[in-house]
Design a protein around this nucleic acid. Structure first.
Ligand SMILES: [Mn+2]
Ligand SMILES: [Mn+2]
Ligand SMILES: [Zn+2]
Ligand SMILES: [Zn+2]
Lengths: 125, 125
DNA sequence: ATAGCTATTGCAAATGATTTGCAATTGTGA
DNA sequence: TCACAATTGCAAATCATTTGCAATAGCTAT
């Protein structure tokens, strides 16, 4: 985490409580989590600020994002990976990303967002 | 299209103008399109109804959905495929889906949603 | 340690996509 | 043609996310 805060500082961004707290949550939460749920865990921080931090992290490519049910789920971009998410209970597991989608004729800088949804063992009973 | 309407009728759904019109738009639009844009093209139909039709099609697995900038983009599920979408202008191209993501230990019925975003030729100048 | 400047915050209000309640309308099968 | 349930349009509600703005808090140079 220090690394990330430092990296931001290098870019001229201040080291503030919202940035520290949001990163803390992301660090301790290896799976996909929404802005709302992040805010739930750190109510001292205003929701708007949570969103602002997440958008900053997104700009810097420091988070992976996926969309489920009209909300964005975030997690720190460590190794390239994705998540399988249970549509019913929200439980998710990490899946290594072994794919590359990059050779396009008419596009450059193509990024991929792979969202896998299904039913977890529990919910399929 | 007749096929799809028939298929719905078989399931006990009525053959209505909103369903006909929305399907018509999807038929003639091979790329990813939003509910808003669909409504734009058929203002005779109420926006709420557009959403209701799209949700119905989703239930039946008749559309592919991807999320870009907090809105869902729809297109008829013909052959498995995805889209590369320009982040700047929205231009999109179809990409065949040659991937399979299905063997999971703790999940069943896993569906994938792959969204590719980048910059199109035009916008990268 | 202090002061000053600017980035960043919290708050409240705005936005934009999507959903919902309900009364009026329409498709369907009898 | 009738009757009934499904579906619609409309307006209001929701829900996630963004934004304007005045107050606050980092950072840098005194
Ligand atoms: Mn993760
Ligand atoms: Mn398509
Ligand atoms: Zn589950
Ligand atoms: Zn473009």
């Amino acid at each position: 985490m220090k690394d990330i805060l430092e990296q931001l500082k290098q870019q001229g961004y201040k080291l503030t409580k919202p940035r520290e707290k949001v990163l803390e949550v992301l660090m301790h939460n290896h799976f996909a989590i929404s802005a709302q749920d992040i805010h739930q865990k750190i109510k001292i921080i205003d929701k708007a600020s949570v969103y602002r931090v997440l958008n900053l992290l997104e700009e810097f490519g420091l988070v992976n994002i996926e969309n489920v049910n009209n909300e964005k789920l975030y997690c720190l971009a460590r190794d390239p990976h994705h998540h399988v998410i249970c549509k019913k209970c929200g439980y998710s597991e990490e899946v290594a990303c072994t794919y590359s989608f990059d050779d396009f004729k008419n596009f450059i800088n193509v990024q991929h967002q792979l969202t896998l949804t299904g039913l977890c063992k529990k919910c399929s009973n």
